[in-house]
């Protein structure tokens, strides 16, 4: 419909520029070098993404006077250890213990997710058994169920088990995830050749043997991705830990931070010193495993 578009107002459409223009437009975006505008825009985006983290650090290192100025301070102060000491010495917050708890919860959940999800993913990808297709479909369907909506009943179930207020209540429900099973299954389908499994079978290898010596070595990259994503999600989980752990002696760090931010007078340099400490492990993970996290998210998108 635009074949009879009015001529462009280019002053002198020399044949060379015209051809250049045509090839430029026909190029896929991936082959088009980013211009200054794109770099500027992306830099602003990155600044916007990083600024709250930077500012958290600024306030965490400042005095009350410094945070109560306009224009706001933008350079970190030297009070970080002072503020941190206040956080750690608060009576009912159990901040130090909460960090230990978060490490325990996130580590145990991650290890368990990697183990059980790779096992189940292997079964769905490479083993033949009756009902495997409908069962896999069931796993995928559970991905869409917002399980947060069962929290009331989950709390009652945990009460019957006597687990409310203990770390078991936050560890056990997260030990295998539908996403993990599905993600591992997809990876194993593509990365473990059927012939390899078959020939190991002919040599008399048991299922567990195949898992241990063929599947596990092949899925290490996927385990790294799934492990990072699971650790971040578990560490950051807030609603359920708040419901089951609040007011007990075993908060996770997220619950402890919300405790710091409650009460009639909240001191933000203190709150944010705590928040910063609880963010540092994740920043380290992003620095070490950023590439893997990016890949995990992007692969998940293509598959879904």
């Amino acid at each position: 419909m635009t074949t009879v578009a009015p001529p462009r107002r280019d002053p002198a459409p020399a044949p060379t520029t015209g051809r250049k223009r045509a090839t430029l437009l026909g190029r896929a975006p991936q082959d088009t070098p980013a211009g200054i505008g794109a770099y500027l825009f992306l830099s602003l985006t990155a600044l916007f993404a990083a600024f709250p983290l930077y500012w958290m650090f600024v306030i965490a290192t400042s005095t009350d006077e410094a945070t109560a100025q306009l224009p706001p301070v933008v350079i970190p102060g030297d009070q970080f250890l002072v503020n941190l000491e206040e956080v750690f010495s608060l009576q009912d917050v159990y901040f130090a213990a909460s960090l230990v708890n978060s490490v325990i919860v996130a580590t145990v959940v991650t290890a368990s997710v990697l183990f059980f999800c790779s096992l189940a993913g292997f079964a769905f990808a490479k083993l033949r058994f009756r009902g495997s297709r409908p069962l896999l479909l069931f796993v995928i369907l559970t991905l869409t169920v917002p399980n947060q909506l069962g929290v009331v009943a989950l709390y009652i179930v945990m009460g019957k088990l006597g687990w409310n207020g203990t770390l078991l209540a936050v560890i056990v429900p997260g030990m295998v995830t539908a996403f993990g099973v599905f993600y591992m299954r997809q990876f194993i389908v593509n990365s473990v050749p059927d012939e390899l499994v078959e020939s190991a079978r002919v040599d008399g290898a048991t299922t567990m043997r195949v898992y241990w010596s063929i599947v596990l070595p092949a899925v290490r990259p996927a385990l790294a991705v799934l492990g990072l994503l699971t650790f971040v999600a578990t560490w950051n989980d807030f609603q359920w830990p708040l419901i089951t752990l609040n007011g007990t002696d075993y908060p996770t760090s997220m619950v402890a931070i919300s405790d710091l931010a409650s009460g009639n007078y909240v001191i933000y340099r203190r709150v944010l010193a705590g928040a910063f400490v609880a963010t540092v492990p994740l920043l380290i993970m992003l620095v070490i495993g950023g590439r893997q996290i990016v890949r995990g998210i992007m692969e998940g998108a293509v598959k879904s």
Binding site: L53, M56, W235, N236, I257, Y268, A275, L282, L286
Partner: peptide, 9 residues
């Protein structure tokens, strides 16, 4: 990757 609790504060 930033905890929502931390960024919200």
């Amino acid at each position: 990757i930033t905890p929502i609790t931390a960024s919200t504060l």
